[in-house]
Simulated scan of single mutants.
Amino acid sequence: MHRAGRGFTVIELLVVLAALALLLSLATPQYMRHLDTARDVALKENLRQMRDAIDKFHADQSRYPAVLQELVDRRYLRRVPEDPVTNRVDSWVLVPPPAGSGVYDVRSGAPGPSRDGSAYATW
């Protein structure tokens, strides 16, 4: 005996796939915006932590650290954080103090602008 009505027709499958494609085309840009925003927030927090560690190091040692790794060696940081935009630890741009040597400030080495239009290098 032949059973009618089992399975899906090609038209039904195409309708379901079209609906899924429509949902994905609406959700994907929003998801990407959230990822970019999360990277920006993580970058600001990493910069804040490193600048705080540099300030504490300067207050304790009366000098600026020679390199970021010195903050880790002296336990001001657990590790040098990764730049979430470049996904690298060695892309930080070290800013020397006006007079002398060492690390006075740190900036992101990421090229281009952030979501708010400002350049990452100015943060």
Rank of each mutant, 00 (worst) to 15 (best):
118 S>A: 07
103 V>S: 01
26 L>G: 09
112 G>R: 03
66 A>Q: 15
48 R>I: 14
88 R>V: 00
97 P>N: 12
12 E>D: 12
57 F>L: 13
75 R>K: 13
84 P>T: 05
64 Y>N: 06
74 R>P: 12
32 M>K: 08
77 L>N: 04
103 V>W: 04
85 V>L: 03
87 N>L: 12
59 A>G: 15
112 G>Y: 01
20 L>F: 10
32 M>T: 08
30 Q>D: 05
64 Y>A: 01
98 P>E: 13
87 N>R: 13
14 L>V: 10
59 A>D: 15
20 L>D: 01
110 A>R: 00
49 Q>I: 15
78 R>L: 07
64 Y>H: 12
51 R>W: 10
62 S>E: 06
92 W>M: 07
88 R>W: 02
42 A>D: 15
57 F>Q: 01
7 G>H: 02
23 L>W: 15
118 S>C: 00
71 L>F: 07
17 L>D: 00
13 L>C: 03
66 A>W: 10
98 P>A: 13
22 L>V: 14
116 D>P: 00
60 D>Q: 10
11 I>P: 00
43 L>H: 02
117 G>N: 03
35 L>H: 02
16 V>Q: 04
23 L>C: 11
121 A>F: 05
51 R>I: 09
14 L>I: 10
120 Y>S: 10
8 F>G: 06
92 W>A: 09
6 R>T: 12
67 V>L: 08
48 R>H: 15
109 G>H: 04
61 Q>T: 06
27 A>P: 03
41 V>L: 07
29 P>S: 00
87 N>I: 09
93 V>Q: 06
97 P>I: 10
107 R>Y: 08
98 P>R: 14
114 S>I: 00
91 S>Y: 04
81 P>E: 12
18 A>M: 04
19 A>F: 13
75 R>A: 14
123 W>I: 00
36 D>A: 12
65 P>A: 04
107 R>L: 13
5 G>T: 13
84 P>L: 01
114 S>C: 01
34 H>E: 14
37 T>W: 10
47 L>D: 02
96 P>W: 13
10 V>I: 09
112 G>A: 07
19 A>Q: 09
40 D>S: 11
49 Q>C: 12
83 D>L: 07
42 A>F: 03
48 R>P: 03
82 E>W: 08
88 R>L: 05
123 W>A: 06
23 L>K: 08
49 Q>T: 14
3 R>L: 12
98 P>Q: 11
106 V>H: 04
6 R>D: 13
77 L>R: 04
84 P>H: 04
100 G>N: 13
23 L>D: 02
82 E>C: 13
70 E>W: 09
99 A>E: 14
49 Q>D: 15
64 Y>V: 04
82 E>S: 14
65 P>W: 09
60 D>F: 07
74 R>Q: 15
86 T>H: 01
15 V>N: 01
40 D>I: 06
88 R>A: 06
67 V>R: 11
21 A>D: 06
77 L>H: 14
115 R>Y: 00
42 A>P: 01
21 A>G: 14
28 T>C: 03
86 T>C: 02
112 G>N: 05
76 Y>D: 02
12 E>C: 09
102 G>C: 07
15 V>S: 05
